[in-house]
């Protein structure tokens, strides 16, 4: 301090104050970002350490036995796969086409704005409310019963706004003057969408779809009330083992399975709980990294 005060080129008190404020801001924001990252790393680390010992090919390939206390997690794993696949088959066409309509065709009027508000509100509805809606609408009113189809429909309703919004954003990223250039050449709106808009936004749309998969795979509440079972005896013979559920059947799913063995099964070995959590976590990280890879690809292939 003393030497600085004597140096005519040293910082003035005002400059020192400014620098100090800047440093404080930097430290505070850094600490906050670490507050975000550290718990996540701790959670992932803990689950890895505690669950790693049970992970083996047998653990993945065997069905749960004795109410989940023994065996592996093949049934829930394949159940989650079929659940998200069915959900995707329902939600992807509806969501993508709705997004195309809203961005490309819908006039800018009150009705369109009302639809967009509805979409945003739908995204804010808690998942347990979606579960109750699914129970009332699909399981009871539409006579689907507690089933894979009813659960997939419930997840579809829940994830619809995500797909609509991401599709809209991907389409809106294609500059309007490309569309106008096509219209000037006598191309119809659909020709323009098919030849110019979609090919240049497909990666963004796909990213949204994949993120929906990872969300659907991790949800518990909506499927608990609409079709996921706590425990089911599953077929062990070969072709049936690969496709153990029909659309009208109840099913096992990883998130639900984890929920059950973590709370409801007495004397459940701890490492098996963490093992299931580890598999679910890896599954979702895997799906999300696929989305990241596609997004990176998109950035590299930018065509204007």
């Amino acid at each position: 301090m003393h030497s600085q005060a004597q140096n005519p080129f040293g910082p003035t008190p005002y400059e020192r104050k400014k620098e100090r404020a800047s440093l404080i801001a930097k430290v505070v924001t850094f600490v906050m970002s670490m507050a975000l990252v550290i718990p996540m790393l701790l959670i992932i680390g803990l689950i890895f350490v505690k669950g790693w010992s049970v992970i083996s090919v047998d653990y993945l390939w065997e069905n749960p036995r004795g109410g989940g206390i023994a065996g592996g997690i093949w049934g829930p794993l394949i159940g989650t796969f079929f659940l998200t696949l069915t959900c995707l088959v329902i939600v992807a066409p509806v969501g993508v086409l709705a997004g195309i309509y809203l961005n490309e065709y819908a006039p800018d009027n009150r009705a369109t704005r009302a639809i967009m508000i509805a979409v945003t509100s739908l995204a804010g509805v808690p998942s347990i409310v979606h579960a109750l809606f699914g129970l009332g609408a699909f399981v009871v009113a539409m006579h689907m019963g507690k089933s894979l189809l009813a659960a997939a429909c419930t997840l579809a309703v829940m994830t619809l706004p995500v797909i609509i919004t991401s599709t809209r954003e991907a389409l809106a990223a294609v500059p309007r003057n490309f569309r106008e250039a096509c219209w000037n050449l006598g191309a119809s709106k659909w020709q323009t969408i098919r030849t110019i808009v979609l090919p240049n936004s497909i990666s963004g749309i796909l990213t949204g779809v994949i993120l929906v998969v990872s969300r659907a795979a991790g949800e518990t509440a909506p499927i608990m009330l609409t079709g996921a079972a706590a425990y089911l005896p599953l077929p062990e013979n070969m072709p049936d083992k690969l496709m153990p559920y029909y659309l009208g059947d109840q099913f096992l799913a990883l998130a639900m399975h984890l929920n059950v063995i973590a709370r409801d099964v007495p004397n459940m070995p701890t490492e098996m709980k963490f093992g299931s959590a580890l598999v679910l976590l890896c599954l979702i990280l895997l799906i999300n990294s696929l989305a990241i890879i596609i997004r990176v690809q998109l950035r590299r292939r930018k065509r204007w």
Binding site: E180, N184, L185, G186
Partner: peptide, 16 residues
């Protein structure tokens, strides 16, 4: 109609 009329606007637009 638009196919019968060629149109060039001042902002150059190369399609992607």
């Amino acid at each position: 109609l638009r196919r019968r009329i060629g149109m060039v606007f001042p902002l150059p637009v190369g399609l992607p």
